[in-house]
Amino acid sequence: MPEFSSLETGQVVAQREFPVTRDSLVRYAGASGDFNPIHYRDDVASQVGLPGVLAHGMLTMGLAIQPVLSWLEDSGEVVDYSVRFTKPVVVPATGEAVVSVVATVAAMDEENSKVRVDLTTTFEGNTVLGKAQAWVKF
């Protein structure tokens, strides 16, 4: 398990790739209650001018924090988590959209034993979450 004293700014603490499929979107719709059809119907997505069926922004936000939770185990907890949704993740009818997350220590708050972890979250080479920052309290 990570210890606060062993961390330093710039350190990559976790990374993971997530294969997002249409199944993932249906599962998230059910779990979250967000049944907006742009997240599962191609015809509706194209009617409103989207490039295709999109992953829920909140699904991307939800998965992006997972590498941090796995890294932390019981050593700390997320006390503040924020993102900007900068680009959509288009999920094809078959196959998968791979979302990649790299978690890096960006700031240390020695006084409060808190660490800011920034989540570089990309899809097809584009950043899909801007200013994705989680404060972790140790």
Binding site: S24, R27, A31, G62, Q66
Partner: peptide, 12 residues
């Protein structure tokens, strides 16, 4: 419900 939500966000 929490477990379902965790699974849906690729969590444990």
């Amino acid at each position: 419900k929490l477990r379902e939500f965790s699974a849906a966000t690729f969590g444990n």
